[in-house]
Computed example of a mutant assay.
Amino acid sequence: MDERMLRVKTEAGELAAALLAGEGPVVVFLPGFASDMQGTKALFLRDECAARGRAMLRLDYSGHGNSDGRFEAGTIGRWAADAEAVIAEAVPAQDLVLVGSSMGGWIGLLLARRLGARLAGFVGIAAAPDFTAELMEPAFDDAARAALAREGIWHLPNPYGAATPITAALLEDGRRNLVLGGPIPLDAPVRLIQGQRDAEVPWRTALRIAEAVHGTDVRVTLVKDGEHRLSRPQDLALIAREVFSI
């Protein structure tokens, strides 16, 4: 497998990435919140791309995985800029298929506005645009709100591991980067995969994205027994089918 590990320099430090050689358009995997490029879906797609001779780019946002920086210093806008910097360094001219998992779906929709004709397609896997404002903030109790107001940070219990630090800066920046309040200027093919047993992202979010997208080549696949991670063998097979349909 001809995959090359990269370190992309930015003003805030170096970002980790991995570029698999192959034909285009390049599949770009955008991880979720507090996730990284070593996750099940990222590695599955890397192997699928290798088997098909397709190029693929994986990356870690700042404060994630092997990239420099502190997670607490990150925001949606910062992580979108990180992804844009890695793309500019690793695949500056190639056409791209953005594959965004959970928060990565929000990052991908922000990037789609900037890529123009280079965007060959977008795939959202339990995509979670606007989640800080729509899902996080309304769920905060009085103690969480008090901690954010007093200290600028609160630690969210995480069912998958250690508590996740949530900062007031993350929430404020999230409000500046909302995408579901109006049309999404995306004309490339869009494929959305969403589990209906997702306890973190309401499945109707996929329908809202589909409605907001400007283009008409949009397909939503609902997995009735699918949960947020969508990492079972049958889920991965579905993801591959949708990614490589573009």
Rank of each mutant, 00 (worst) to 15 (best):
D2F: 14
K9S: 12
T10C: 06
A12P: 06
G13M: 11
L15H: 04
L15E: 03
L19C: 07
L20P: 11
L20A: 13
P25N: 06
V26N: 04
P31K: 07
P31H: 15
F33K: 00
F33G: 00
A34I: 04
F44L: 09
D47W: 12
D47P: 06
A51N: 10
R54V: 10
A55E: 00
M56D: 04
M56H: 02
S62M: 05
S62Q: 10
S62E: 08
H64W: 06
G65Q: 07
N66I: 09
N66M: 14
R70L: 15
E72C: 10
A73I: 03
G77V: 00
A83Q: 00
I87R: 06
I87E: 01
I87L: 14
E89P: 02
V91Q: 11
L98E: 01
V99Q: 08
V99E: 03
S102F: 01
M103L: 13
G108C: 02
R113F: 12
A117M: 03
F122H: 15
A127D: 06
A127V: 14
A128C: 06
A128G: 08
P138I: 04
A139C: 03
F140P: 00
D142V: 14
A144H: 02
A144I: 01
R145D: 02
A149Y: 13
E151I: 09
I153H: 11
P157R: 02
N158M: 01
P159G: 01
G161W: 13
G161Y: 08
A163W: 07
A163F: 07
T164W: 14
P165R: 11
I166Y: 05
I166T: 08
A169F: 07
E172I: 10
E172D: 14
R175I: 00
R175H: 06
G181S: 07
G182P: 04
I184G: 02
P185A: 05
P189C: 08
P189R: 09
V190K: 11
L192G: 12
Q194E: 12
Q194V: 01
G195C: 09
D198C: 10
D198Q: 11
E200W: 09
E200F: 11
R204W: 12
R204E: 12
L207C: 06
L207Q: 09
A210M: 11
E211P: 05
E211F: 09
A212L: 07
V213R: 07
T216W: 06
R219K: 10
V220M: 05
D225N: 07
D225M: 05
G226H: 07
G226D: 02
H228T: 05
H228K: 05
R229W: 08
S231D: 14
P233W: 04
A237R: 12
A237D: 01
L238E: 00
L238V: 00
I239T: 04
E242P: 02
E242R: 14
V243T: 07
V243R: 08
F244I: 06
